[in-house]
Design a protein around this nucleic acid. Structure first.
Length: 422
RNA sequence: GCGACCAUAGCUCAACUGGCAGAGCACCGGACUGUGGCUCCGGGGGUUACCGGUUCGACCCCGGUUGGUCGCCCCA
């Protein structure tokens, strides 16, 4: 045997039957996006490195140390997307979508890449789906998007996912807040962990969600961002909350929640699940408003808001609750003898052509082994085709879960199946 | 990037102090001549992750590599 080549660390194969969980997730998700009028976009996995440096932020962990970046043969610096908001915005600008429509609502779904140490619910190739809405600065847009996320999660029958909400202010009030926060943290600098002392210089907001108890104690007395919002931001935040209240969407305000990407303004939120299956990876989704990003990437001044969910994590939760979308055949056709194999093959092909899910064993073999395979396939019915059936034109439709077989005319098989599966 | 633990059949795991690598499940076949599931019987499956060392002898002890799990960190 030749030397074996194994898969790349942190990148997983998704095989049957586990893939059925993903089919369930994707089908429910697409249905929810459809109900909300969001349309799918697909952007390339590779982008100009500068796109992520300018959007996600040079100082973030994602860009600073987690991107798969390399030069192509022409010497261009390319990066595998670590997230899909920036690529979507790039496509939005590049195709001048704002010229054709005032409000654009997109969703995406696909693999993202971050070079990270792996653990439960965290992989180097991971899957995200997300919704993005461009063109509306109104609180109703924030609320609709959050409602979309909540309905999607609800549609997956996942209990125990809660919503945390915050506002990070905008370019008018955030500088002042950062100044007062930095001043407060400097006064307590010696009480912070080493990591946070460094964050104090680079990105003081990140100190707020440090899990270190010492830092938590300091943060407890820190000025809250929600108290420092300017009037318009405060009004926006209140309006979003009002809309959420109106649709009875439960949430908790967490003024210490910040996000890992630099582009957020005003609304920020996370979908959090406290489930053992996720280990310490409790966030299944998160997002917020990014009113400046389109312009910062060279586009028109168009406000936007969006979120992303971790599909791997959702699948961990779905696997635990046993949710999946199975693809079982309706009928399994077995050939009792070699002479019947041609007719069995023809019958299977014809039924499939008319829309039925039908399986058979291409190896033939003993009837017994074919019946075993029929059972394993999970088919609802089995039909044996042999000398007798070929002569009479009749067959026995046998329910594999138990119960009486039914005699039927073979030329009405399709209709008989349809009637029984209704 | 830092630390801890782990790696034996496709899967879950045994194998005494260093002494012939096993079981259950799964898969294939038979008992049962054209009918699956249950039961019984049989069969195929292994460079004990990889490389090196110690030893008469290594799944076991030692070193390294790779991979996995869990914390820190970060996030989805």
């Amino acid at each position: 045997m030749s030397q074996r080549i194994s898969g790349v660390k942190g990148m997983n194969d998704l095989l049957p039957p586990d893939i059925e969980v993903w089919h369930f997730l994707e089908a429910r998700a697409r249905e929810t996006f459809r109900r909300f009028g969001y349309q799918e976009v697909r952007t390339p996995v590779l982008e100009d490195t500068a796109l992520f440096v300018r959007s996600v932020g040079e100082e973030t962990d994602i860009v600073g140390k987690e991107m798969y970046t390399f030069e192509d043969r022409a010497g261009r610096s390319l990066s595998m997307r670590p997230e899909n908001t920036a690529p979507a915005v790039r496509a939005y600008i590049e195709h001048a979508v704002h010229v054709r429509e005032a409000v654009t609502r997109w969703y995406y779904l696909g693999p993202m890449f971050r070079y990270e140490r792996m653990k439960t619910g965290r992989y180097r190739q991971f899957w995200q789906m997300g919704g993005e809405a461009y063109g509306s600065a109104e609180p109703a847009q924030d609320a609709e998007l959050i409602d979309l996320g909540l309905q999607l999660i609800h549609g997956l029958d996942l209990p125990g996912v809660r919503l945390e909400l915050n506002s990070l202010g905008d370019e008018n009030c955030r500088p002042a807040y950062l100044a007062s926060l930095t001043a407060y943290l400097r006064a307590h600098q010696s009480e912070l962990c080493a990591e946070c002392q460094a964050r104090l210089e680079r990105n003081p907001l990140r100190v707020l969600d440090c899990k270190n108890p010492k830092c938590q104690a300091v943060v407890a007395g820190a000025p809250a961002v929600t108290d420092a919002l300017c009037r318009p931001c405060q009004a926006h935040f209140e309006a979003v909350r009002h809309k959420l209240d109106a649709i009875h969407a439960p949430y908790t305000v967490n003024p210490r929640m910040v996000r890992g990407l630099d582009y957020y303004t005003r609304t920020a939120f996370e979908f959090i699940a406290d489930a053992p299956a996720l280990g310490t990876a409790t966030a299944v989704g998160g997002g917020g408003r990014y009113d400046r990003l389109v312009q910062e990437l060279g586009g028109p001044s168009v406000p936007a808001v969006g979120w992303a969910m971790g599909m791997d994590r959702l699948c961990l939760l779905l696997a635990e609750s046993g949710k999946r979308e199975e693809a079982k055949p309706e009928l399994f056709v077995a050939a009792a003898d070699a002479a019947a194999q041609d007719e069995a093959f023809r019958l299977v092909s014809e039924l499939r052509r008319s829309g039925h899910a039908v399986d058979f064993d291409p190896r033939g073999g003993s009837l017994k082994s074919q019946m075993k395979r029929a059972d394993k396939s999970g088919a609802r019915f089995a039909l044996v085709l042999g000398e007798r059936e070929l002569a009479s034109g009749d067959g026995e439709l046998k329910p594999l879960a138990g119960g009486e077989s039914v005699r039927i005319r073979l030329d009405t098989l399709g209709a008989a199946l349809a009637a029984r599966l209704r």
